[in-house]
């Protein structure tokens, strides 16, 4: 995937670029808002990682607003040190698809960027999600594994749905909290882990192969273990 990183801090930029390239993405990078706008408008990217405070007269918000005004809907993830709730709201209102505050864990950034690109692709509403022998019917709200029906609580269903929509991607605890519960805070207790482990009891335990994996220092991933 082609990703544009607009970030003026050299260390952060090179760290992000290196990490994204290692994850197999093609990355363009500029430290300057004006150039960033030019590149974003003239080339095609799958996602943009955008700092808010940028040199060159065009800051992140202006860049994004201009881009959206040109009917460019490339997914944008804000990466900013401005951490207040209002800043976040402003960023999302301007057309941002996600908002991360610095300092950040790269795993989280990668997970979110990949989630954004995925979101961009699945525009057509799906009614069925399938990963290996796990099937989810979104209309009848039923889940089957190896043809066997699995009973899930509504919240467990949504948790599994989120994991399945991001199958093959790392999903962090924060993403789960935001995506499944719509909470924007960081609980001190391991509430997410408990819910995931409950889900595992139902989805993985009775079957020989586990689908929900823990990714150390990052979160979870639903994927088929390569043999």
């Amino acid at each position: 995937m082609r990703i544009l990183v607009v970030e003026d801090d050299k260390d952060v930029a090179s760290f992000v670029v290196k990490g994204l390239r290692e994850a197999g993405h093609v990355v363009e990078q500029t430290p300057n808002g004006r150039d960033g706008l030019f590149m974003a408008a003239s080339e095609s990217f799958d996602a943009i990682v955008l700092d808010r405070m940028l040199p060159g007269g065009v800051d992140g918000l202006r860049l994004l607003e201009t881009l959206r005004a040109q009917d460019n809907h490339t997914p944008v993830l804000f990466l900013s040190a401005m951490a207040q709730v209002d800043d976040r709201v402003r960023g999302l209102k301007a057309g941002g698809d996600d908002y991360m505050t610095k300092p950040f864990a790269f795993a989280e950034l990668l997970a979110r960027v990949e989630a954004l690109t995925r979101r961009g692709k699945t525009d057509t509403p799906t009614t069925r999600l399938v990963t290996a022998d796990l099937e989810m019917d979104l209309l009848s709200r039923t889940v089957k594994r190896a043809g066997q029906k699995i009973d899930l609580q509504p919240r467990e269903f949504r948790l599994l749905e989120f994991l399945m929509r991001h199958a093959g991607q790392v999903v962090t605890r924060t993403m789960l909290l935001e995506g499944v519960w719509d909470y924007h805070f960081d609980p001190q207790t391991n509430v997410i882990d408990v819910h995931v482990s409950r889900l595992r009891q139902k989805v993985d335990k009775p079957f020989p192969i586990a689908l929900i994996h823990t990714v150390r220092n990052a979160g979870y991933m639903l994927r088929v273990e390569e043999a």
Partner: peptide, 13 residues
């Protein structure tokens, strides 16, 4: 209620 649901599992554990 939602919060209770979120924490119920953690409490049970």
């Amino acid at each position: 209620t939602d919060l209770a649901e979120l924490y119920d599992a953690a409490a049970e554990e």
